[in-house]
Amino acid sequence: MPASPSPLADPPALVAALRAAGCVFAEDEARLILATARNADEAAGMTARRVRGLPLEHVLGWAEFHGLRITVEPGVFVPRRRTEFLVDQALAQAPRAHVVVDLCCGSGALGAALAVGLDGAEVHAADIDPAAVRCARRNLAPHAGRAHTGDLYAALPGRLRGRVDILTANVPYVPTAEVALLPSEARDHEPATALDGGPDGLDVLRRVAAGAAGWLAPGGCLLSETSARQASAAKEVFARAGLTARVAVSDDRDAHVVIGVR
């Protein structure tokens, strides 16, 4: 006799299980799980993983970002919706960009969104984490983008030097001492290399800014997300690297983006 389906395959029971686990938006999460799962048993398994604390995006296998469905594998940094503001700022700063590089790319969400916004642009992404690069390759493939494994600029083809119109770097910017204070979904399920920015949260940003001028085309721009508390110091980092720097702020998205122009 076949086994009975899990009670979590029942939508009201699924919502109840998510709510009992502390999911604030249980109804919305249940709707996404049911829309993604191929059958009732898969929905039950996805719900069980979410109840155990896995990020919803890792459970679903995708995240919504700038109108795209971005593939996200377990252990890969989940793109935040506030980072859509960085994409908007990049498109506004360089609407006719031909060459785009996304450093610290994670899933490649920024590169994919910019590829859509800049139809025909040459897009490259790079990350030190092989799992992230695998995701980025999948997300950039529909846009003929390329993803490279390596540490910042060392991962990039040398022919891009002096040609990059948009350089995005969604670097880790959480101070080391504060990583333990992050929500468990990030702290326990995303790589530390995507979160820990060193003692003041700006270590990786300094390295990116220091090398940017050699890769940017004349008039090219570097954009990086930061926190409200770090924005002034991050702007100074860009300025010391020889870039004309400013900070763009979105109160609605609680987003701060430092923009530096060569």
Score class of each variant (00 low, 15 high):
175 P>T: 03
171 V>Q: 00
247 V>T: 12
51 V>R: 12
90 A>G: 09
227 S>D: 05
7 P>C: 08
8 L>N: 10
65 F>L: 06
58 H>M: 11
122 E>A: 14
31 R>G: 15
141 A>I: 04
145 G>N: 12
124 H>Q: 05
234 A>H: 00
30 A>M: 10
180 A>C: 13
180 A>I: 13
207 R>C: 04
26 A>F: 13
13 A>Y: 04
83 T>N: 04
17 A>P: 02
173 Y>S: 07
160 L>Y: 02
50 R>T: 13
85 F>S: 01
80 R>Y: 04
75 G>I: 00
119 D>L: 10
254 D>C: 08
218 P>H: 09
83 T>H: 03
24 V>C: 05
82 R>G: 06
175 P>Q: 08
23 C>M: 07
43 A>D: 04
88 D>G: 14
179 V>P: 06
56 L>Y: 10
120 G>K: 03
225 E>C: 03
50 R>N: 11
117 G>E: 07
113 A>M: 04
216 L>P: 00
77 F>A: 02
221 C>K: 06
105 C>M: 07
162 G>T: 06
129 D>C: 14
77 F>P: 00
189 H>M: 11
193 T>Y: 12
54 L>D: 12
107 S>M: 07
166 I>S: 02
7 P>R: 11
12 P>K: 00
256 H>C: 02
95 P>E: 13
104 C>R: 13
133 V>K: 09
237 V>H: 01
17 A>G: 10
89 Q>W: 00
18 L>P: 02
90 A>T: 11
75 G>R: 01
78 V>S: 00
18 L>G: 08
1 M>T: 14
261 V>G: 09
125 A>C: 07
191 P>A: 08
103 L>N: 08
149 T>R: 15
82 R>E: 15
103 L>S: 08
135 C>Q: 06
35 A>R: 06
210 A>D: 05
260 G>D: 05
95 P>H: 06
74 P>A: 14
51 V>M: 14
195 L>M: 12
205 L>A: 12
71 T>L: 04
253 R>F: 15
14 L>V: 10
85 F>A: 01
42 E>T: 11
233 A>G: 09
180 A>T: 14
105 C>Y: 03
13 A>H: 14
133 V>N: 08
80 R>H: 02
184 S>I: 14
245 A>N: 10
262 R>F: 06
115 A>L: 13
145 G>Q: 10
231 A>Q: 09
176 T>E: 15
74 P>E: 14
44 A>R: 00
105 C>S: 13
174 V>K: 00
246 R>A: 05
102 D>Y: 07
155 A>Q: 08
258 V>M: 01
166 I>F: 03
159 R>K: 08
93 Q>W: 11
41 D>Q: 15
126 A>N: 00
107 S>H: 05
79 P>A: 07
234 A>M: 01
167 L>W: 03
150 G>I: 06
108 G>A: 06
133 V>W: 09
209 A>R: 07
85 F>H: 04
163 R>P: 06
21 A>T: 03
104 C>I: 08
219 G>M: 06
245 A>I: 15
163 R>E: 15
215 W>P: 01
111 G>M: 00
202 L>Q: 09
174 V>T: 07
253 R>Q: 15
123 V>Q: 01
123 V>H: 00
225 E>S: 02
113 A>S: 06
185 E>I: 15
24 V>R: 09
225 E>I: 01
101 V>R: 02
5 P>L: 15
